[in-house]
Write a protein that binds this DNA or RNA. Structure first.
Lengths: 132, 132
DNA sequence: CCTTGACCTTCCAGTTACTGGAAAGATTAC
DNA sequence: GTAATCTTTCCAGTAACTGGAAGGTCAAGG
């Protein structure tokens, strides 16, 4: 399929998809007319990249994740150790998102935006003291 | 406290903290010698920024989140609607992280890196067919 | 067949969000 | 007092896109 279609299905702008090709992340086939030709497998990888990037992984981390995803026949211990450290990172990110969620929920529940300067929840979260 | 200390406590490089000041995200006090002086409240906000950025929110989104966090006495409906949409985004990110976690766990559990080109889990995830 | 509009191509420049390094002043440790 | 370790500002470089120009391709309508 063409890049526009792949873009719709993956959620990545066509520009970004071309950029990912430039830096060697994902190289699609080419049709006879020179158009890029994406397989469903390519689209899944693009979606995978779209998510990973959106979740704060760097391009290089995404490259590793994609290599895992593609199983570049590495030594087992190697694959496992990278995957394991990524899993820890994911676990941490989930916890952080839960905390952020918690903070915002309290905000919605308890702060009324009525120009009081003393929202009790925020004070309890952030504190006010100066220290060296 | 000095910027180095704030850097240690927030997890953000001093460079980045200064950059955030440049773009008007967080303006600390200044000590008599011209050094930036961070309060604990500032450090909490920096940590908040460190996390939000690491979780894939853009600077502008972080600015909004920080405004919520600081309760910039907006109209209640305004605050709530922004917070609500951020909460949805957070919910989505958590789900995506869980899916990524799921994928990697299967990888670790079922792919042995023994140079077989046919890891069954990855095939089931990504598919192989071409379509227009 | 021809045009029109929506695709696609490459290339190059601009933006966002840092990041590194120089040059110089302030502080702390001996 | 002086050396090491802060800190300051400023300017340049990098990472990861993003926009726009100039031009080729394709499917639909007349």
């Amino acid at each position: 399929m063409n890049i526009g279609n792949a873009s719709d299905k993956s959620g990545l702008p066509a520009k970004t998809i071309r950029y990912y090709e430039d830096i060697g992340l994902l190289k699609p086939d080419r049709a006879g007319n020179g158009y890029r030709d994406y397989s469903m497998s390519d689209v899944h990888k693009l979606r995978f990249l779209q998510r990973s990037r959106g979740l704060g992984f760097s391009i290089e981390e995404c490259r590793q994740l994609l290599a895992l995803y593609e199983d570049k026949s590495r030594a087992s211990a190697d694959v496992k150790s990278i995957a394991q450290s990524k899993l820890q990172e994911i676990e941490r990110k989930i916890i952080e998102l839960r905390e952020l969620q918690h903070t915002l929920k309290h905000l919605v529940a308890h702060c009324h935006g009525d120009k009081r300067p003393d929202c009790p929840i925020l004070e309890s979260i952030s504190g006010t003291a100066k220290s060296s």
